[in-house]
Amino acid sequence: MPASKRFLPPEAVKRVQRLELRARHIVEGFLSGAHRSPYFGQSVEFVQHRQYVPGDDVRHVDWKVWARQDRLVIKQYEEDTNLRCALLIDSSESMSYGGKGQTKFDYACTLAACLALLVLRQQDAVGSVLFDNKIRSRVPLRTSQRHLTDIVVSLENTQPAQKTNLDSVFRDVVQTFPRRGLMVLISDLLGAEDSSLRGVDTLRRAGHDVMVLHVLDDDELDFPFADPTRFEGLETSDHLTCNPRALREGYLQALERFLDHVRRACAASKSDYLLVRTSDAPDAVLAKLLSDRMHTVRR
């Protein structure tokens, strides 16, 4: 199966096409687009008046004010710019877990591919970074429609391995993407909780609009194991032989505490957060994510 088919199932593509990704925070771009820019320019969104000075484009003079007040003022508009969206995909070994055939990494790749497609359809720039404890693969930001192939190939060629270290990775990402843009982190955030959250904070402090798609498998969320099992850590050498039913309640409590902590941290850093089950349809997840985001932006 070609990589484009693997990570972009036709049904998902069909539904994603109808979605729109909007930057919630101000992002910097070279082109005019649908996203707010830190630069004032031509736009329908009026921002303020300023005193006319010689050299100003007379097209921006507010003639209604001149007629009423007999003074020349220039109308200033919020400039729209293009979106620069970086997809940060966790490819640590913990992402290799998948209870029902599809691993978390596969699912994360699907989400990333769908987002890339969506962004490119909007004429925005998209790039990708695959990382574990360091960056494994990087695809620069492009707006070309053919750029999607580069991203998908990059996803295809990466296998989950190594531990996670988001903090150090995101320092590199910040340097790689100095201009403010949208950072979409797709990860299970397992392995190093504090490091992960520090990494998110690093991105946010760099001015990026951050979206966290927290991907977890159904097994990890429900812990449905019944028979005696020897659990062997994917990113650690720990192992535990136990009757999983006896530990289920404690496990779920610990997991819930972790999720709650992550939610709070994301909220504190004004990052978007969405917990995603691998059993959820990717298009539905994106639809919900973008719908919530649009709602937030319009407010």
Binding site: Y97, L190, R230, F231, E232, L234, E235, C242, A254
Partner: peptide, 20 residues
């Protein structure tokens, strides 16, 4: 008699085991 299960969220499992 037990089966082997690779597991990502070992921290939570070990925490539950320590507590219970």
């Amino acid at each position: 008699r037990h089966r082997k299960q690779p597991w990502a969220a070992m921290d939570f499992l070990l925490e539950s085991y320590r507590r219970n």
